[in-house]
């Protein structure tokens, strides 16, 4: 399925990263990353496991501190923010985790309510219920509202995870391996949902994946992370039009696994 056309506002940069470096002991994960995410753009970060893709979005959301470099999100310098300002910024960023990270001890309703009731304390019960039902309906899972996360399938959990981030109407969405561990049909559903979110909620997104189908279906632009740096970037075809063996191997491996 082709990605629907979306107007990307190239005059407005929502994430601006320059010379980002991050190491864990002797392991140098990110070695000078430069990145600009434009308003309403879906940017896919491709790369093998362990290349630091998730580290990148954890730095953007303030979960990890960079060793050096500039990380500017919606005009705010993330590593320099105090807790209160970082929390304010986080309300504008949705983070969809690889394993959904739904709260096991809460029903789906409580999971979705959690960010709402904790951050928008003046909402009435009626307003909370309406918001929860709206986002659950948007991901097609209204009927699971009173179920526990353990009762849902992997694909349903991913959808609920995305719904939970959408409830605060974020401007930026960060997807960590959205299709990992899902069957091909569910992968297509999730990819469609990512595009729907972009269109309906006007979000700008970074999608971390090693799944080429996901990259092709959701990405307006693709960057490839190799040796801690972005080596290739452009459209899907541009990224893979190269003689670089590592990029070709990556393509062939995905192709053989489709």
């Amino acid at each position: 399925m082709q990605k629907p056309k979306v107007h990307i506002d190239k005059d407005k940069v929502v994430i601006h990263i320059r010379n980002l470096v991050k190491s864990f002991g002797d392991l140098h994960v990110l070695r000078g990353i430069d990145l600009d995410l434009y308003n309403r753009e879906n940017l896919v970060v491709l790369g093998r496991s362990g290349t630091g893709k998730s580290v990148l979005i954890k730095i953007i959301s303030g979960l990890l501190k960079p060793d050096s470099g500039l990380v500017n999100v919606l005009g705010e310098e993330v590593p320099l923010l105090n807790t209160r300002d970082l929390d304010k910024l986080r309300l504008k960023i949705g983070f969809s985790f690889q394993n959904s990270a739904l709260y096991d001890s809460m029903t789906i309703r409580k999971n979705l309510e959690f960010p709402l009731v904790r951050n928008l304390r003046n909402l009435t019960r009626k307003e909370i219920n309406r918001s929860v039902e709206q986002v659950l309906d948007a991901v097609g899972l209204l009927h699971t509202i009173n179920q526990m996360p353990a009762e849902l399938s992997g694909g349903q959990r991913k959808r609920v995870g995305i719904a939970r981030t959408l409830i605060l109407r974020p401007e930026i969405m960060l997807y960590d391996e959205p299709t990992a561990g899902l069957d091909p049909i569910t992968c297509i559903d999730i990819n469609n949902l990512i595009n729907e979110v972009q269109q309906r909620y006007n979000t700008s997104s970074i999608i971390i994946t090693h799944d080429l189908a996901c990259a092709k279906q959701t990405g307006d632009r693709i960057v490839m992370l190799l040796d801690g740096q972005f080596k290739r970037q452009g459209s899907f075809e541009e990224v893979f039009d190269t003689d670089d063996e590592r990029v070709k191997t990556f393509y062939d491996y995905n192709f053989l696994n489709q």
Partner: peptide, 16 residues
């Protein structure tokens, strides 16, 4: 909660 990133999920949803 830590190993399934539920604690991180709380943090990114602006909850301490």
């Amino acid at each position: 909660m830590r190993v399934t990133e539920q604690i991180d999920a709380m943090e990114v949803s602006a909850t301490n």
